[in-house]
Amino acid sequence: MKNISQEVRQELAARYVLGIMHGKARQRFERWLMESFELRQETWFWERELNNLPLLSEDSPPPQRVWKNIEHQLNGHSTKEKTWKRTSLFGGALAAITISTLIALLVLPQQDIRISHEMIAVIQNQTAQPLWTIKLDEQGGYLVLRPENIEKPTDKDYELWLLKSGTQPVSAGVLPVSQGEIQVRLSPSQLQQLMAGQQIAVSLEPPGGSPTGQVTGPVLYQSTFVRL
């Protein structure tokens, strides 16, 4: 996204939230949202102001079938038990298996799930500031971990976990906190875990990472990979 003036940013965000920006312009704007914190803030401004306006009519309870459909949809592509039940710290968190996960599991050959696209995940803090950018090179089978705006915690390390519904989290190592990106080569099982779950989490662990191979500290952040 090119540098644009505050005025233009305000106008674009207003048009987007109001709904009068359509089609490709809307898609382009959503792409810019991923890149610009200022644009996200401006969008949130309009979302707060407009969506707080009174409704024109009274609340109208939807028919019961809507909730049934939601339940069905969230259960639909997986087994019911796995989707809703919290089977472990992460099991529930990742229960909803996405279409892309299903494609990865069912369509791609199990022996070689790598395809020629990159995927990216941005780990953000509570105010949506990016802390790390994680890029997956599927052909090379490695992750590129880039710290964006993160300080090293005292006597601790941040550890990255690959999450997949119904399985234990798999470590992808300690995240870098200083300038510069690092590459982490993934084993076939790590890559399969990542492709199947497409979700990651960051926990706070003793220096050097979890001593047990499983999460021992608090889980601070979660994110999802999107295909570029």
Binding site: L55, S57, E58, D59, S60, P61, P62, V66, W67
Partner: peptide
């Protein structure tokens, strides 16, 4: 929340 949100959808 579904009552309010359903009104938005209907509007």
């Amino acid at each position: 929340t579904s009552g309010r949100l359903f009104s938005i959808c209907r509007q």
